[in-house]
Design a binder for these strands. Sequence first.
DNA 1: CCGAAAAAGATTGCATACGATTTTTGTGCA
DNA 2: TGCACAAAAATCGTATGCAATCTTTTTCGG
Lengths: 236, 236
Amino acid sequence: MNIADHIYSTDSANQDRAQAIRDNLRDAIVDRRLAPGTKLSEGEVGTLFDVSRTVARAALQMLSFEGLVRTERNRGAFVANPSPEEARQVFASRRLIEPGIAIAACGRVTSADIAAFRAQLDEEGRFIAERGPTARRSEIKASGDFHLLLASVAGNAILQRFMEELVARSSLVIALYGRSGASACGHSEHTEIVGALESSDCERASRLMLHHIDHIEADLDLRVRAGPALREALNF
Amino acid sequence: MNIADHIYSTDSANQDRAQAIRDNLRDAIVDRRLAPGTKLSEGEVGTLFDVSRTVARAALQMLSFEGLVRTERNRGAFVANPSPEEARQVFASRRLIEPGIAIAACGRVTSADIAAFRAQLDEEGRFIAERGPTARRSEIKASGDFHLLLASVAGNAILQRFMEELVARSSLVIALYGRSGASACGHSEHTEIVGALESSDCERASRLMLHHIDHIEADLDLRVRAGPALREALNF
DNA sequence: CCGAAAAAGATTGCATACGATTTTTGTGCA
DNA sequence: TGCACAAAAATCGTATGCAATCTTTTTCGG
């Protein structure tokens, strides 16, 4: 049994190893342990997870589909470095989809779901209270998980997958363009949304979600700067 | 210039052959030249397109991500056979997304776009007038292309890709569960939507789109039947 | 000393090879 | 004939090898 197996046996009984590697890399990207622009060479990924380039390549292809890595022919794969325009499109998509997801979830939410939401909110709160970069990462991830939980409650597998992609890309965007930690604010908004769900006020849940997304995007600084392009050119 | 060109010209010149094979297979699936449940073996696809299994496998993996192909470990890839529940989710997703796309497109549409829409509608009309299964296939494809054209006008690459997936899956669903050819009706609705776009009546365009999707779904017979499961069991 | 061309090294794209698993075919027995 | 079981064929999952392409280093002329 190799290292990778040891790590991921608990994670999930994924059909193939490529998917497990994909999940792991995605977490690393979303957590910002892998900075935008970082090169992900097939060989390196392969040796890191103790698989051949074939499998590593498949994992990178999956991430490329999700928009988390960008591949250039004969050059390789890099952690995506979304432009301000892409960032705007991500949030435009979320503004379009998530209020509807909130309504759908509101119509199907059970008491067990509410309990799951409460647990999720608690975890979020814990990470916000903590200090340090690790807690910060966990906080971003937990914030995204709230939206994914909502999507799963909505009961539409297709929309759920779309949301997974949008949340992951949002994490990248926030990492790149986030100005402050308006996270506490985000947390209170999450709490409000759960409250609306609990009282079956679907219209309110939808409206709160829309405002929430607006607030997240308002915290971004999407002005074009030379920074990212330069860093990109220097292959950093 | 067809829709596919329209979509991918902006994206990038096709990176590799796998993508070309993917496009080809997708067309075949959407056109129903490949029936749901058909086995797509890596070797067969490879020899058919004169590439190695490696490349064929990559193409099948892409289709699997789009939901057009279902892969089973150690068994292979099959053209997707969406269940009635999946069909409902596809249309629920479209009801959520496409009215918003119509509004976005309405706010950005140019006279050149209108001309493209007119050409698209003309082509649709031609296929409807013709008889025979080939025209029928082209008609379904043209109908989908209308929605993809609208998505491209909306100017959001992420939503555009979501729509590509949803339209492709819709074609599968219609092929499986379509009752009649309410296509003429669909055509007239497309015409109306273009009219709304032309007069910049965004609210109306959005409303017409929602009704249009409802009409398409209303033409489906989503009752569960033994048929597909049996055919599936027989590996046909 | 600096810049450009050339060689060396690294990395990707793709094909092929081989073990593992599944499916099909063939055979013996009731 | 019909069924269980084993051999054979087909197919998949994965590793590895080679050519093409890109990147880096070295070398040489100015």
